[in-house]
Design a protein around this nucleic acid. Sequence first.
DNA 1: CGGCCTTTTCAGACTTTTCTGAAAATACGG
DNA 2: CCGTATTTTCAGAAAAGTCTGAAAAGGCCG
Lengths: 198, 198
Amino acid sequence: MQLSPLAQSFVLHFGEMGSRWGINRTVGQIYALLYLAAPRPLCADEIVEALGVSRSNVSMGLRELQGWNLVVPRHLPHDRRDHFTTPEDVWQILRILAEERKKREVDPTLSVLRELLMQPATTPEDRHAQARMAEMHALIEQLTTWYDDVKRLETERLVALLRLGAGVAKMLDVKDRMKGRVVALTRRRGAAEKKKEG
Amino acid sequence: MQLSPLAQSFVLHFGEMGSRWGINRTVGQIYALLYLAAPRPLCADEIVEALGVSRSNVSMGLRELQGWNLVVPRHLPHDRRDHFTTPEDVWQILRILAEERKKREVDPTLSVLRELLMQPATTPEDRHAQARMAEMHALIEQLTTWYDDVKRLETERLVALLRLGAGVAKMLDVKDRMKGRVVALTRRRGAAEKKKEG
DNA sequence: CGGCCTTTTCAGACTTTTCTGAAAATACGG
DNA sequence: CCGTATTTTCAGAAAAGTCTGAAAAGGCCG
C-alpha cells in the first residue's frame, strides 16, 4: 500500500505530534494510518510498506497501541495474519484517550499527593508545602469527579452538553432565580442525589 | 536550601512525571519546587542547591517554564538576582496549562486538518481519508469551542459547573420538559445567542 | 570606563529512547 | 509432527534528548 500525498501528510503530522503527546513517532504514524483506513483493518506488512519502517518496529508499535486500547486486533477469514483497526467512532476514541491519559498522567499524581498529605508535617515549611499540595489535590479531585460523572453520558448528551458550553453557567443563574423550582423538578426525576446545590 | 523528605518526594515525582507530560525531568522538578515555595520567589541558586543540578540547566529550565507562562520573574528589592515564582492560584495555573497545551498539542493538528480538507480529493481512498479527517476535525472543533466558552467563566462559576457535572445533562432534560420556559428565561438574560436548542 | 556579580550560550559528554536485523518463538494447515 | 507463514524478542546501532562546565554576554554601580 503506497500512501497518497494527502494521507502521507496526515500520517507524518501525527508522527511529529507524537513527541509532544509523549508517544513516539512510529506509534503516532501507525495510529494515524489505522485511523484513516478504519473501519478496514490493516495487517502489519501493509503498515510496514506504507510507513517504510521495520517490521519489528511495527510489531512494538502495535503492542503499545493495544496497551492503550486504541487499536484492536481482528481476524479476517482465510488470512492467518493478524489485522488491526481503531474504533471507528471518534467520540469513542476520545473516551479511550481521556481514560488512558488520566490513568497514566493524573492518577499517579493523585496517589502521591494523597500519600504525602497523610504524612505528619513537623516544620512550618512542611506545613506550607502540604497546604500547597492540598490545593493541588483538591483541584484534581474536582476535575476527576467531574470527568467520572460526565464520561458516563451517552455521546448524544455529551454533545448537547458541549454545545451548551458556558451556557450552563447561565442556567445555574436561572436556577438560582427560580429559587429551587428546577432543582425540585430535577429531584423528582431522581437525578440530583450526588450534587450539593448552592 | 535543603529539601525536606516531604518536599523531596513531591519534587521527584514531578520530575518523573515530566517525561509523561512531554517536559524534561529538571523542568518538572523546578516547577514543583517553585509551586511549593509559592508565593515566595526563589532565585536560580536556591534551585540549584535544592535540586543538585547545574546552574546552566536551571537557567534553561526556567526559560522553558517562562515560555509556558508557568513561571514569572520577580525582582526583589536590594537583590540583583532574578527571582521566580509560579502563579499562586491553582485554578489560574490550570487555565494557563490548558491554554498552552492547546496551543502546542491541538492547534497545530487543527490547522493541518483544515489544510488537508481543503485539498481536492481525486481517488476514492482520498475521499475516504478526508471523511475521516472531517470527523476528527468536527470533534476537535466542538471541544475547542466548548473550551473557549468555558474558559471565560470566573473561577467561582467554573467550580459550580464542575460540581454540577453530568447533572447538566439532567438539566437539559428538565429544560426539554419545560418546553422552552427555561430557555425563554435564559434568553431574557441575554445568554443564549450562540447555542442551538434541540 | 572597569570591576564585579549574574545570567546565558553552547560544544560536547552523557543518558535515554527509538529503531533495526537476525534469531527465536508461535501458530497453523496438511 | 513437519514445513511454512507469521509474530515477537532482543542486542546493539542510531538518533534524540538532557545536562554540564567553561566561556561569553549582560547589567549595574562607583
